[in-house]
């Protein structure tokens, strides 16, 4: 098991009966005059795995980054685990405590060892004693398959290993939600699988996940729901079977024909 802490819902409850953990209502965002998100409405249930697809520049990355306040939005409302994402610094920090994020370019801290990368936030944000944080970090490294790298620096690891460390770093905070922003796009083909395997394992253990990706195999296998973005608008959403095998919208068909 990748997670050794309890998620605060009963995984045996059917998905439809669980509570919403992320609610986005009428979210709009502009860069200058460029309208990048147009009335986006998305709700995510506890333990749900949502994959966001779309062509580049469709606003899917921007959307996932508004959820933990890395991007501001100008209109609408986002509520994560009861906290409103707005200008209140305390609220945003509360959300970030419960939300892990994995980036396309890993963004490990190059001047710290792998172990220090993982324990930094647990020690200073969660205020755990160093020994506890390190114990959890070492366990996580073992579970993502690289326990022997704990005392190396990020520059000494391969891309796939770095991304697995980044996942471990996010999980060390014991978050309720994980956001993945194109986690495999910067990886060499032979390393994509090792990262996707960790993500699949995470999905199986009941983590709430929002994943922006181009990995169709992953989407089909793991997603509870797929959302298709184009030009800042949600074109279509549904289960993988609905979306891949029976797309309703012309734009969806076009996108799938280009990518598959």
């Amino acid at each position: 098991m990748l997670l050794d802490y309890k998620l605060d819902f009963n995984p045996d409850t059917p998905l439809e009966e669980r509570d919403d953990i992320i609610v986005c209502k009428g979210v709009n965002k502009w860069y200058g005059n460029h309208h990048v998100l147009k009335d986006v409405n998305v709700s995510v249930k506890q333990g749900e795995v949502v994959v966001i697809l779309g062509p580049s520049g469709s606003g899917k990355s921007t959307f996932i980054r508004t959820i933990n306040g890395l991007e501001e939005y100008q209109k609408g409302e986002i509520v994560v685990d009861g906290h409103r994402v707005a200008n209140d610094v305390a609220e945003i920090e509360a959300i970030r405590k419960e939300t892990g994020m994995v980036f396309q370019s890993f963004n490990l801290f190059p001047h710290m060892t792998i172990l220090n990368n993982i324990t930094l936030a647990p020690i200073w944000v969660r205020k755990w004693p160093k020994a506890k944080a390190e114990e959890i970090a070492l366990k996580l490294l073992e579970r993502v398959g690289i326990p022997e790298q704990a005392h190396k620096y990020p520059g000494q690891l391969s891309g796939g290993q770095q991304q697995r460390v980044a996942i471990a770093r996010a999980l060390a905070m014991q978050p309720k939600i994980m956001l993945f922003d194109e986690p495999t796009s910067a990886l060499d083909p032979e390393m994509i699988k090792e990262v996707l395997d960790v993500m699949k394992e995470l999905a199986r253990s009941g983590m709430t996940m929002l994943v922006v990706t181009h990995e169709m195999g992953f989407a089909r296998e793991v997603a509870d729901r797929i959302i298709l973005f184009d030009q800042g608008v949600i074109i279509e959403e549904g289960t993988p079977a609905e979306l891949f095998d029976n797309p309703k919208h012309e734009r969806t068909k076009l996108f799938l024909s280009q990518i598959l």
């Binding site: 890395l70 920090e93 963004n107 490990l108 801290f109 001047h111 930094l120 936030a121 200073w124 944000v125």
Partner: peptide, 25 residues
Amino acid sequence: RGQYEAAQALGLSTPRMMFFVILPQ
């Protein structure tokens, strides 16, 4: 910018982000 974002996403406050992540580099 990714270094700032990674630190923020972990919930580090601005002073801590500066002290532990940005300034040393």
